[in-house]
Design a protein around this nucleic acid. Structure first.
Lengths: 231, 231
DNA sequence: AAAGAAACAAGAGCACCGCTCACACAAGTG
DNA sequence: CACTTGTGTGAGCGGTGCTCTTGTTTCTTT
């Protein structure tokens, strides 16, 4: 029953977006009185939370599936797989993506204890990617070759972050974490920009546009493969 | 009168956000009957449009003011000024920023003829910055040193964009435009991430975090000059 | 099998929203 | 003076989230 509610709500979300999600509409769709819904859902916020978890799970499944098809030694291929899987999922689930990575729904705070774990699956994948890159010496500081002060900033910005087991378990240092965050931010920003048409739908070739951005983002964190291939 | 409505609506927006903006609340605040508002505002969408234009203007003023204080020859300083002004404005006007660069308000499309010009002032500033960088030979392709295929992608992605007078007037080529877009995307993504606490409010030192990202974004588009670091 | 408890569903109702309409009233204009 | 124009009101429609009371069904315990 609750699953059925979630299913109908997900349809409603995919069609009209999160802000237009109406409990009454869900009840109507199911042939119930609007008040009957409250037997199974505390309030609108709880339904939103469940939808967020479902969306994170759907996204995580899609990205992990794409990632699993790539040779683990092929770091660039893994980055490319994760990025394109994220973009593809976002383009086929625009409202869900907006719910996860867009501006927050007003007067709603996602309860961390329910959304944290499913919400970090993609990032966890990237952390493993970074750790593997570090192992084979292909990890690059995004600020490499920049003014020396930036390195200090990276330490200041990321230092305390390293205590988080999320990063600590992978054995990453501050520059690696910051480089990863830069690449992740550029990736998300690119997808967001494309999805919300903030460029005034003037991107002539979205695929090439995204491929370019994904490559640039990847180079913030990975050194070119040819540089480390000895014989 | 219309100005007064806009003023009250802006207050309401700053306090409760765009999605919670209520015409009735504005009327109530002004001591009018809710129906009287419709003498001056066609509907909620029109009010939103006016608020968007006002926000773009406010942001443009702030960024241009900060930019004007920098020596035009100091390219890094200009980038830094624009970026920090954008971030400062966003942090002091979070709901307005969400309205401009967050996920779109459901069932609302901003009319381009009213928002295009004020909405591109900051980008116009950056285009001028890129043009100046090109003039002094400090323009950098974000994909410099990357696999050769990326250059082709840049042409495919940005080629038709160059016909837009917005870029054509500055005399930029495809790699320059794409590098600029990458830097802009990373900048916006960084501000968005910080503002919407998508990192789970775990950023220990937001200022250092932003300074790092701004520097990385700047290096996507500008080659290093003399080692001048801004604090 | 009877009785009680738990679960489920319905409907009325409250306060809010966007928006429309008929109406009243003032001021300026021919 | 009549008349148009601008301005404001109140009622009302359909929509929302949510609560509360009532009634019905189903499961469980004796």
């Amino acid at each position: 029953m609750e699953a059925e509610i979630l299913r109908v709500a997900a349809e409603e979300l995919a069609r009209h977006g999160a802000a237009a999600l109406s409990l009454r509409a869900v009840a109507r769709e199911m042939g119930m009185a609007s008040s009957a819904i409250y037997r199974y859902v505390r309030d609108r916020d709880e339904l939103l939370t469940r939808l967020i978890v479902a969306a994170y799970t759907s996204l995580g499944d899609a990205v992990e599936a794409a990632h699993a098809t790539v040779d683990p030694a092929d770091l660039d291929g893994r980055w490319w797989a994760v990025g394109t899987a994220l973009r593809d999922w976002a383009r086929s689930h625009p409202h869900e993506y907006a719910l996860l990575y867009g501006s927050p729904v007003p007067d709603y705070r996602a309860p961390a204890e329910q959304t944290n774990e499913p919400g970090t699956r993609v990032q966890a994948l990237l952390v493993r990617l970074l750790a593997d890159a570090q192992r084979v010496g292909r990890l690059r500081d995004a600020a490499a070759g920049i003014a020396p002060g930036v390195q200090v900033r990276a330490e200041a910005a990321a230092g305390p972050l390293l205590d988080d087991p999320f990063f600590a378990d992978a054995g990453l240092d501050a520059p690696a974490v910051m480089a990863g965050l830069a690449a992740w931010t550029l990736l998300l920003g690119t997808v967001t920009t494309e999805l919300f048409e903030q460029l005034g739908d003037t991107i002539p070739d979205p695929d090439a546009y995204f491929a370019y951005m994904l490559e640039v983002a990847g180079r913030l964190v990975l050194t070119p493969a040819t540089a480390t291939v000895h014989s």
